[in-house]
Computed example of a mutant assay.
Amino acid sequence: MNAPFDDATAALQALLDREAIRDCLYRYCRGIDRCDEAALRSAYWPDATDCHGAWKGSATGFIDQALARLRQGGRRVHQISNILIELAGDTAAVESSFLALQSTAAQPGRETFLCGRYVDRFERRQGEWRVADRTVVYDWIEERMRPELAQDDAQLFGVRQPTAAMAPADPVYALLAALHEPARR
């Protein structure tokens, strides 16, 4: 007699689970692109593992070495698409395609374009979804020199302001702070 209600409840929970997983993937992108340590760490369980190119080990170790390198400067943009989520109770198999464009301060003018997939095992613990194990599969890489990228932001972007910045200087953090301010009377 309760089958339609139970089916609807299960379908709603699956939608909520998928949305929570997508949100986690997007937090990872913000974390890596903006060097936002809190966002980046919130995407992984503390005991998670990560096979990320030359890095194979704990996700905590990956985050530590990545932030140390990324905080030296450069620009990064990650886009995620084609997110496929297979739910199985408190575990999910998730495949997400990514496009990443990166530059570093250590090599001014050098640009790296990466395409690949995050192959993740997500786990739900105490109602929260995070990455428990990640393998990055690389499908494409292109490196090229673009001398104009060695210019400072004022020269490179001109009137196209504001430009991206590391946390907390990026404009998104002012928006988030304003969103959470108590209502003014």
Rank of each mutant, 00 (worst) to 15 (best):
D17R: 08
D6K: 11
R130Q: 10
A174H: 08
Q79H: 14
R185I: 11
A43W: 00
D6P: 00
I141T: 15
A59E: 00
E95Y: 03
M166R: 09
F157K: 02
E181N: 07
R146M: 11
F122K: 02
R69M: 09
E19M: 08
A150P: 03
L15R: 11
R41Y: 03
V172S: 09
T9W: 09
R184K: 12
R125L: 12
I21G: 00
M1E: 11
R22W: 03
Q72A: 13
F62M: 03
A150Q: 06
R69A: 12
L12A: 14
Y118P: 01
A14K: 07
G127A: 11
T91K: 14
N2A: 15
A93L: 14
L84P: 03
M1V: 08
Q151E: 12
V131K: 01
Y118W: 02
L25D: 04
G89Q: 08
E111W: 10
L99F: 13
A165S: 10
R69I: 07
E123T: 07
R41G: 00
S103A: 13
A154T: 13
A106M: 07
Y173F: 12
L149R: 10
A169R: 13
P162C: 06
G57L: 01
Q72H: 11
L101W: 12
R69Y: 10
F113V: 15
P162N: 03
T91F: 07
R134A: 00
P108D: 07
D153R: 02
P46Q: 04
G74R: 02
Q155W: 04
N82C: 09
F122A: 04
M166S: 06
A38P: 02
G74W: 06
